[in-house]
Amino acid sequence: MDAVVRELSYAQAIQEAMATAMEMDERVFLMGEDIGVYGGAFQVTGDLVERFGTERVIDTPISELGGAGVAVGAAVTGMRPIFEFQFSDFATLAMEQIVNQAAKMRFMLGGEVSVPVVMRFPAGSGTGAAAQHSQSLEAWLGHVPGLKVIQPATPHDAKGMLLAAIADPDPVMIFEHKLLYKMKGPVPEGYYTVPIGKAEIRREGRDLTIVATSIMVHKALEAAAALEAEGIDVEVIDLRTIRPMDKQTIIESVKKTSRLLCVYEAVKTLGIGAEVSAMIAESDAFDYLDAPIVRLGGAETPIPYNPELEKATVPQVPGIIAAARDLVKGVR
């Protein structure tokens, strides 16, 4: 029998994934700042504390380094913690435990342990919260072997990928764009997983491949719809996982369209776009390219407070349309 599918918001989908896992597995528990009675800064944990109690929905002190480390320690010793950072920016305070410990513990101990921890990071700009509450740091963690880093773009994937993350024996970092939390979409009831490491083609097209992450998937789809009216047929790939990256899906697509545009919110240089472009340049898809690869990423600046500046700092639909049009028309 097929599962019942309802419309849920992205935040509700994440909450449902956590509740589903907690019901199925006693070892799964939540830690984070103000995730209990407050319901989380973005109301993602909501009323889970009422359902599962304060023993399994644990408010931590404001101690990101210690808290993340406690989650790692619990994971190594048999529990299945899900640690919520209040904002992804605060990963910077916990880098030691994430990068030096969680990512490497299994390796350093010769495979004697696993670290099945999940860390959740509300990320991105667009909320007027300025430079220290708006960053997109996923590529930082994507650079670390031992971690898996995912960025679901839809409510369906948010639930399925989080459930996959919880089931995964290794540390999985999940970046959730704050502007997606209220977005609604179809989500099946019950348990299902969406595989980590697999990109999804959101729209098929012949003229150009856009590889996008997170909220940029939706902006790319909007751009693609507008470009259709101009007779430009865009393929949109939702990368979904940045480590390990699904190279094959991108390579196949580029071989078909011969043009590649990468769109992501994080600072443009030294990021996901660089990785995807270089990967294509190193692959046999390179020979199929009819135009230079183009990256659209965040400006080389911290996120400003002023709303107009803030918008101008990250790719927007008109910019994606223009870049795609230029690419297809051979302006570049």
Partner: peptide
């Protein structure tokens, strides 16, 4: 968020 603000509109309340 104005240029006459103490942070020239870059910082905001926080």
């Amino acid at each position: 968020g104005k240029t006459t603000g103490y942070c020239k509109g870059r910082g905001g309340s926080m």
